[in-house]
């Protein structure tokens, strides 16, 4: 089980700030594909992956990063702090 979090407009499109997901996916990309097939709102949220960043266990990673050891995964647009 992985806690999946969403921030900013990704959160708005998915409709929840976080959810617990039961998955067999091996990589971030596989998880994204799995979610996209589940419901339309995920398809909308993940339609342009070049506009989305991902973090596993609160560290930035890539879409081809493996999910082994992941307890928390977050999807969000590029940061705009400062």
């Amino acid at each position: 089980m992985i806690k999946v979090l969403y921030f900013a407009w990704v959160r708005e499109r998915v409709g929840v700030p976080y959810e617990i997901v039961e998955t067999q996916s091996r990589t971030v990309m596989e998880l994204v594909e799995e979610l996209k097939q589940k419901e339309r709102r995920y398809e909308v949220a993940f339609s342009d992956l070049s506009a989305i960043k991902v973090a596993i266990n609160q560290e930035l990673c890539e879409f081809d990063t493996k999910l082994s050891g992941a307890t928390e995964i977050a999807f969000f647009p590029p940061m705009t702090g400062g």
Partner: peptide
């Protein structure tokens, strides 16, 4: 400042 702008997880609305 450079890193805070694009590597710290904040989003402005």
């Amino acid at each position: 400042m450079d890193y805070l702008k694009s590597r710290a997880p904040f989003w402005k609305k």
